[in-house]
């Protein structure tokens, strides 16, 4: 099994900006192996921006990102490719290719990165789809399955190359509570059985309590991290009132805590 304290992602003095407007200023955090790590915060605080920086779609304005001991910011093309092979990304919309069946979608990274023959690739793709409960939908096209199934297929595609880290952008957005909790169970299962590290952008409280090992909370005003730790600790005893409020759904409410 993997060692829990091994650091997989390390962000040092990371600054994210679009042009001249700084979204996140000088933030530091690290993600340990096998952890379900959640980035949360209110709307517009830069959660998705941070994720896009972590997967190398955007260049940071300053600071460094290390993924599995590789420098993402200064990686040359070959190193960059190696990093990308070790990570998988599920986008908010799923971003499956509409002209390909679910099986072909999952097979695509295998076709591009491995020299396996078509039968082997089909088998792997089928296994990945079965893992997320879509073994009977391999021939379906993305438009023929539901939103929750598309997201699960996207997770299967992200896992095609057996990455060490999976990035999920709002996995439960737009899903009903039952589908959403099924997805949570899936994430927990994959984290525990395969030792995959998850980095998840989310603001679904129920889902956060169910799956997270650790949470960082971003804040639009300070442009930084205002809380870091396990969700239950943050809910009960964080010094910052905003953080406690977020976890208790505002000043007035007290939600019953969802235990895993």
């Amino acid at each position: 099994m993997t060692i829990k304290n091994d650091i997989v992602i390390q962000a040092n003095a990371l600054t994210c900006a679009y042009g001249t407007s700084v979204i996140l200023d000088n933030i530091n955090f690290e993600v340990r192996r096998g952890e379900v790590f959640i980035i949360l915060g209110g709307s517009g605080c830069g959660k998705s921006t941070l994720l896009k920086h972590l997967i190398g779609l955007y260049q940071p304005a300053g600071g460094s990102i290390k993924i599995i001991d590789q420098d993402l910011v200064h990686a040359n093309q070959q190193e960059h490719r190696r990093i990308l092979k070790n990570i998988g990304v599920m986008y908010q919309s799923g971003a499956l290719f509409g002209s390909m069946s679910l099986l072909e979608n999952v097979r695509l990274p295998l076709e591009e990165h491995t020299a396996l023959d078509i039968h082997a690739m089909n088998l792997i793709a089928h296994m990945k789809l079965s893992l997320v409960g879509l073994g009977n939908f391999t021939k379906h096209y993305p438009s023929e399955v539901s939103g929750g199934m598309q997201k699960r297929a996207a997770i299967a595609r992200a896992m095609a190359l057996d990455p060490e880290v999976l990035f999920l952008d709002e996995p439960s957005a737009g899903l009903d509570p039952i589908t959403s909790s099924e997805l949570d169970a899936l994430i927990r299962r994959l984290a525990e059985s395969l030792g995959i590290t998850f980095v998840i952008v989310s603001h679904e409280l129920a889902s956060i309590f169910a799956i997270a090992d650790r949470v960082i909370m971003l804040d639009a005003e300070t442009k930084g991290i205002i809380a870091d730790g396990p969700p239950v600790t943050l809910q009960q005893s964080h010094s910052n009132a905003t953080v406690r409020e977020f976890f208790n759904r505002g000043k007035h409410n007290n939600i019953t805590q969802v235990e895993d």
Partner: peptide, 16 residues
């Protein structure tokens, strides 16, 4: 349309 649906981003992060 692929760009709007983040499919182009998905390709990029798949190393394609």
């Amino acid at each position: 349309t692929m760009k709007v649906n983040e499919e182009v981003n998905a390709l990029q992060t798949m190393g394609i």
